[in-house]
Design a binder for these strands. Structure first.
Lengths: 343, 343
DNA sequence: TTGTAAGCGTTATCAT
DNA sequence: ATGATAACGCTTACAA
């Protein structure tokens, strides 16, 4: 019942633990014969190397920590998958913590990861985190840091971000091109640089077309469904005929609100969201949105960790991933083709 | 840069590491004065306990492993969240592996978890796994096992399952009550007991109403969207006017296919899915489905682990969670209220 | 209350 | 090619 160790194998074979260790490590300095007998005995006993002991002794860890606000958001779970796709083949495993968008949970998560001696931390901070002080304090440079999507630019390490400015710029421009004249925005929590950049892109698009930026129809708030419904009601009262939403759940709320108020979408009210959550394709009308490239970001974040870890790139890298505008139905006044055929 | 250890604290304070260890452990056998100075020094140096060393020495682990087919499925990510909600407060962390529905990845994941000395494994096996032999072989009883949703009943440990039979029974009965006369099923991969039970429930409902079970309209296959589209086309050719789908993605495919063929849903074609994925509420018409209680299952799985681990319950427990039928639009011939107001 | 010493399982260094 | 030994950081009898 107790797990077999290299000592058990050594005893059974009348050799020393060091030889067993060498044989199992694929070390050259061991005879073919002993290696075979060791391997046979190991699988016979169901031996598995104790990573705790191994990592402790070697002073390095094969575990990478990850902190995300919520694991059950498509975006984050796809980033995780993307990171895993790179890290697993490279011999690393992921220890995942959720911050639930709370600062306290994020701190706790960071501590857990550090205590578990992770080689690096890949994270996207919670919306309650106003700066990276707690991250700097807990990590103290003892671990490679990679931030993605929501990043604090003053922290060391790699950063993988979307080109939020250009994305929001394109989305807003697209609404303008489609004839909407008073375009507001559900802007998201502006503590996050990602949301601030989207807001800047939105403003810039309006200005580039000679339209005025009106603070009365800019709604900074969390991009959840309920808030989307709530804020959209106000936006409509204030004469908006379209919204650029910095999150898809907010866009969903906007759609529900607009239709609930008897407005025809997209004829009377236009919407573009952000994230390309799976449901955006499935609503009626389907929601135009910005692709966040979650899986790709996960790939790049993991690769950035590997690069930093092997000292290939010492300097702090910032990778900017372009966002793609996916034009569906909520923003186009003439019919477009659609994956669910409308009868 | 190198992480501080209890030795560093001890040296700085001119005491021994054992005293530091006791002070940090909240041990009573240490003076209030030294405890305070130790705690102050620890936070000054940014000390965090090395869990690897601690676990190795204590012979117990604070990590629980989890293996799921895919982390980016709502169901699984919600089970993970549910498990975390119980395990984190209890002092445990989750190490998560994905099997990607592949047997090889599942084996590799199991090995990783065992090697990381996890205290227990909470898992739902891949669809490629035909039996639990590989699980028994790799775990060898060295770890507490909790299976959920997809379980091998011959393995030791706790099992948390949905009442798939009753759920599918109710769903099919509901379709019959709504006047559908030739009801097929997209049955899912029948290597999994969960899917077999759903099929049994489906059959039983038909029989209870004196309807014949026709193998020609039973489609065992993976419950992905494409397969749903594909199989539904055949089902319609064979005269089906409704489908019970053992998965929501298959149900989504069924909806797309039926509408693509010009059938009115629900008037001419009825659909009930399984899992209550978020999009089922957002399609037009919205998809009736069975609630799988993901978060709740995660709670129970975690609790089962804690119970087994503290030897409260030694015997193997099977917990059956009831499924709830959520009646939306795809299965009801008269209008029902709906979260997205229809204009 | 504090110190001493041994050991968890593995691996690196030095011998043989 | 193999063995002996020490050490990674922490905990815990046992001793003082």
């Amino acid at each position: 019942m107790a797990k077999p160790t290299i000592n058990d194998i050594a005893k059974a074979l009348n050799i020393t633990p060091s030889t067993v260790s060498r044989a199992l490590a694929g070390n050259t300095r061991v005879s073919e014969a002993t290696r075979l007998s060791v391997e046979r005995k190991a699988s016979e006993l169901g031996y598995e190397r104790n990573i705790l002991a191994s990592s402790l002794r070697r002073g390095v860890s094969d575990t990478v920590g990850m902190i995300v606000p919520r694991i059950n958001r498509q975006f984050f779970s796809n980033v995780i998958s993307g990171a895993e796709a790179i890290l697993n083949p490279a011999g690393y495993n992921l220890l995942i913590c959720q911050s639930h968008e709370r600062l306290e949970d994020e701190k706790r998560g960071l501590q857990t990861l550090i205590r578990n001696q992770v080689a690096g931390i890949i994270m996207s901070h919670s919306l309650e985190s106003e700066n990276g002080n707690h991250i700097a304090e807990i990590t103290r440079g003892s671990v490679k840091l990679v931030q993605f999507d929501r990043v604090f630019s003053d922290l060391p390490g790699a950063k993988i971000v979307n080109d939020n400015f250009t994305g929001a710029f394109l989305a807003t421009k697209h609404l303008i091109k489609n004839g909407y004249r008073r375009i507001g925005t559900l802007a998201g929590g502006l503590v996050s640089a990602a949301y601030r950049e989207r807001l800047d892109g939105y403003k810039s698009a309006l200005e580039s077309e000679g339209m005025t930026v009106d603070d009365d129809i800019i709604f900074p708030d969390t991009v959840v469904r309920d808030k989307g419904i709530e804020r959209t009601a106000i936006a409509i009262e204030r004469g908006c005929d379209a919204l650029y939403c910095a999150g898809d759940y907010a866009a969903l709320g906007a759609l529900e609100c607009a239709r609930g108020k008897g407005l025809e979408v997209p004829r009377q009210f236009g919407i573009v969201g952000t994230a390309n959550e799976i449901f955006t394709e499935l609503t009626t009308p389907s929601i135009s949105t910005l692709e966040l490239n979650a899986f790709d970001m996960g790939n790049r974040a993991a690769q950035a960790f590997l690069d930093i870890n092997s000292q290939n790139k010492t300097g702090l890298v910032t990778v900017t991933v372009p966002m793609r505008l996916i034009i569906r139905e909520t923003s186009v006044r003439k019919p477009v083709t659609h994956t669910i055929a409308e009868i």
